[in-house]
Write a protein that binds this DNA or RNA. Structure first.
Lengths: 207, 207
DNA sequence: CCCTGAATTGGGACTATTGTCAATATTGAA
DNA sequence: TTCAATATTGACAATAGTCCCAATTCAGGG
């Protein structure tokens, strides 16, 4: 959107890009260790660059966190995409379940994802993207009853977000992820029985 | 949770509580004027108290913003509650539409609401509360097909949040609020035709 | 191959803001 | 009036974010 350093053109520039990766990697480590009290000072110390350099790559502290989260989310999405699951509904169920279980297992990550909702560009990038792909194929295969219009996408993404939120708040039950996945499938037009079955299957094989 | 000064016991203490209201009021003014670049210094200057006093009432800057947002949301909810609308479905449609239109009209407010999602206690308080009331009556009147279980609540709240988000990002259409309301009603079990009608009615009378 | 100039990145001192704390002032009750 | 509890204050420490200058890199022309 704003800058998005695309396609480093020269090999020199490409080498410079390493600094950004250093910062993101350092951010990930610091975030993992100190949870949410992440400090720019910590990160630059860990990455072994100066304070000023940090702001050459990120507008503010949150933008680094966002980058870390995006990388994390992408790793998850990539893992989901590697599975050769044909049925879009089943793929959706598995990807969503994977995300919810990950959120439950790693609270820091979950909180970061939640914060992303309140950020300008965040999340339209990660969460939605990996959902949109599944949603697009559904109707073509007669799996879902509606195309992935904006509102449907909002609703499914919103369900995931609010479910993560519920888990972070500790107001969840053991079957919260499964119920959320069931809801998501039903929202997409999968009938009740099948939605239950797919969600249960995903919960069994991933949980 | 932590302290929560509840029920001022003496009239003197009650008088002291005025400081908090001063701060929230000042926060509202500053927020309205300087948008998001709100500063604690600005607020304490506006409220005419010292820096230290601020932190007697709020753990950090965001907590004040949260309080301001909560007050705002509550005002909205109160306005909705005053209307003598019997039908829970219609009431839900109107309240939700009101919120979405408000978000569209006041971007600062919308952004603040979005940030609330990523905060510890925020939002479970405001958005959910005013929805829950409507959701609870629906089944009793045979209006909705399901009780307000956690997942349903998550899904409706999530839809509202993501719709606000879409509007803030500028990726909305003129009929985005109406479509979101329709979706919300359908999620609650209202049939398609009726959902359309109620959403349209709400859009007409409030827009 | 080596200059040169433009452009980009790195550095770190500096400013601004947030958040802490111990001392002080105010309040309510006895 | 005195005491205990609580609110207020402003100086202080920690952290975020800015800015300008030095170092590096690249392209192009001797």
């Amino acid at each position: 959107m704003t800058e998005g350093r695309r396609e480093p053109r020269t090999r020199g520039h490409r080498k410079k890009e390493r600094t950004r990766r250093q910062l993101v990697a350092a951010g990930l480590r610091v975030l993992a260790e100190k949870g949410h009290g992440l400090t720019v000072s910590d990160v630059v110390a860990e990455a072994d660059v100066s304070n000023g350099t940090f702001y050459n790559y990120f507008a503010d502290r949150d933008e680094l966190i966002e980058a870390v989260a995006e990388q994390s989310a992408m790793a998850l999405a990539a893992a989901a995409a590697e599975e050769p699951v044909e049925d879009p509904a089943r793929r959706f169920a598995r990807a969503t379940m994977r995300m919810l279980l990950h959120a439950r297992a790693d609270e820091t990550w979950a909180r970061v994802m939640l914060r992303l909702v309140g950020r300008p560009g965040g999340m339209g990038v990660d969460l939605s993207r990996y959902l949109r792909e599944d949603l697009a194929e559904g109707p073509a295969q007669g799996r879902f009853d509606a195309g992935p219009d904006d509102t449907t996408l909002d609703q499914v993404a919103g369900l995931v977000i609010m479910t993560i939120r519920r888990m972070v708040e500790g107001q969840d039950w053991p079957d919260t992820p499964q119920r959320a996945v069931t809801r998501g499938l039903r929202t997409l037009g999968v009938d009740a029985a099948e939605a239950e079955a797919l969600a249960a299957e995903a919960a069994d094989s991933l949980g």
